[in-house]
Design a protein around this nucleic acid. Sequence first.
DNA 1: CAAAACTGTAACTACAACAATTACAGTTCA
DNA 2: TGAACTGTAATTGTTGTAGTTACAGTTTTG
Lengths: 147, 147
Amino acid sequence: MAGLSSRSAVAIHALAMLANRREGSLTSAEIADSLESNPVMVRRVLGRLRDADLVWSTEGRGGGWSLARPPRNITLYDAYVAVEEGRIFSRHTRPPSGACEVGRNIGDLLDAEFQSAERALEERLDRTTVADLLQRILAADKEPADH
Amino acid sequence: MAGLSSRSAVAIHALAMLANRREGSLTSAEIADSLESNPVMVRRVLGRLRDADLVWSTEGRGGGWSLARPPRNITLYDAYVAVEEGRIFSRHTRPPSGACEVGRNIGDLLDAEFQSAERALEERLDRTTVADLLQRILAADKEPADH
DNA sequence: CAAAACTGTAACTACAACAATTACAGTTCA
DNA sequence: TGAACTGTAATTGTTGTAGTTACAGTTTTG
């Protein structure tokens, strides 16, 4: 448990590509190419984004993936919460001893602290939209390579 | 990678117990009892806290663990950074394709977003001291059980 | 209609981090 | 000397993830 999965990175990368594509769609193979990864992994992550109504997919020949909302209305938090599950901090693996003054009461209080910290992280993620990110990506692409 | 280890919870629990003990010391066995865990795991976590100068230990008979600073000067962030390693978010497992406008540039920008979110979490953790937490633990212990 | 190009998933392997435990060497004190 | 500690190596079982192959189902195109 050294951290979260790389699904957030995959999801945000894919959302940025879809936003850059404007009206069209992209296949899982095209997205996997950019990620230097595998179409199946991409479909698994994008399947979660679809469950969260961030993208939609069409099957069959000519099918692929598109944004379900304008990139201005999709935040990094939306992607994060769609693909990562549950909490960042692990709580006590077993309930502490009721015989100890600290053990009896720390559970709920520590949980509140951890939740509060996790919420701070989420609020920061929620302040950046996919449109913001794409704009910066395209700006960086126009700069000289050695800068 | 469903999240961080439970070492933060163990560390903070132990720090609260040591703060509650005021001047004395506690053995890893006593702390493990409260955690319903194992003395070896406790010594491993507290070893990291010692490396970060949050606690110190004495060997031999009558030995044990004590705070190295007043609990007012130890924050949950101090514990977190001492026992958890590295980053919360996993980045791209392989560098994205340089052939893609997005792939060429998303690495650094996404890293900055993730770092910023992680910093928000850390700043929230840094606002609670071990003394704060212990005070609330002791207050909760005085309340009626069904409340 | 048949082939091609997609998505949607199941199944499998490999790997790394973690929790948990046993074992034991070294240290200190009574 | 023996009891009570810390410090740490070694081991085991579990879990989540990354990565891959395989293939069934869907849709468009020639």
